[in-house]
Design a protein around this nucleic acid. Structure first.
Length: 266
DNA sequence: CCCCAGGGCCCGT
DNA sequence: ACGGGCCATGGG
């Protein structure tokens, strides 16, 4: 048993390292509150601190925080790689979030060539504009609601040059069963499929695989990871990606998160 | 004024 | 296939 549910409260076996989980760019919908964080996902909200999660829907957030998975086993497997030892020790409280695929696709299109505080602001304004009013906060918009938003409106909400990507992709996701196809596909096929969406390239696709589809055979390379991992041979982001995907295999994405946390810090 | 941010697109070679 | 310029916006 890795956690216990008592009413609307989840108690986890080990404390979650919420700073590492939330502040390293897996999600952008959270805020510090008291000793912990208020976290939003789709139409849900929770308060998380230490080993407690208080929420409207425990089964949703047990899944969201990936509480059924055995991270001790993952860490044990990755500790076989000498270079990861210190990173794993520092990041042992990390979980990989299981977020809504649609929300994750939109969030990471916004993340391109952007910084975390500004990404959070854009997403917040989009939710306020067309997400359901949940009383005190707004849900993430449905695909249908977001498909109604014009590129001009996205620009107005601060999305910058990503405005057309957002309006085009939202329409595709609202009008087709794209997401179901991506969920069915294996990692490399899903990555290829995701890259057909406007605004989704190699890095954004890998983040969607990681945080929206729980497919970990990927290796998102952003500027921080590239700075950390580049060598004379590995002199492009795609070469870094290929090398580490091959090295860490089915746990490459998790390994990336340990490296990211270690390289970037809080 | 500069540079940078969890990059992708589009155009040339 | 690959490289370089360009793309909004806000903060340092």
């Amino acid at each position: 048993m890795k956690y216990i549910v008592n009413g609307n409260t989840i108690k986890t076996e080990y404390p979650l390292d919420l700073d590492a989980i939330l502040c390293c760019g897996q999600t952008f919908r959270f805020a510090r509150k008291g000793d912990g964080y208020e976290v939003f996902s789709r139409e849900h909200r929770c308060y998380a601190g230490g080993d407690r999660i208080e929420c409207d829907d425990p089964s949703y957030f047990a899944r969201y925080f990936d509480l059924d998975a055995d991270y001790d086993e993952y860490m044990a497997r990755l500790k076989g790689f000498e270079e990861l030892g210190a990173y794993i020790e520092a990041g042992k409280g990390i979980r990989i979030l299981r977020q809504d695929p649609f929300e994750t696709i939109i969030d990471f299109i916004i993340s391109a060539n952007n910084n975390i505080p500004r990404i959070k602001g854009i997403i917040e304004r989009i939710c306020s504009h067309c997400g359901a009013d949940m009383g005190g906060y707004h849900a993430f918009p449905s695909p249908q609601a977001l498909a109604e938003v014009s590129a001009e409106k996205f620009r107005e909400l601060g999305a910058g040059f990503r405005d057309v990507y957002l309006s085009k992709t939202a329409k595709i996701l609202a009008e087709t069963d794209f997401i179901a196809e991506a969920e069915k596909a294996n990692g490399s096929e899903a990555a290829k499929l995701l890259r057909t969406l406007p605004g989704v390239g190699p890095k954004v696709a890998d983040c969607i695989l990681m945080f929206g589809l729980r497919k970990w055979d990927c290796f998102p390379v952003d500027t921080w990871i590239f700075r950390k991992c580049r060598t004379e041979q590995l002199d492009t982001t795609l070469k870094v990606r290929d090398y580490y995907m091959n090295r860490y295999g089915s746990l490459a994405g998790l390994a990336q998160q340990y490296i990211f946390y270690g390289a970037r810090g809080k």
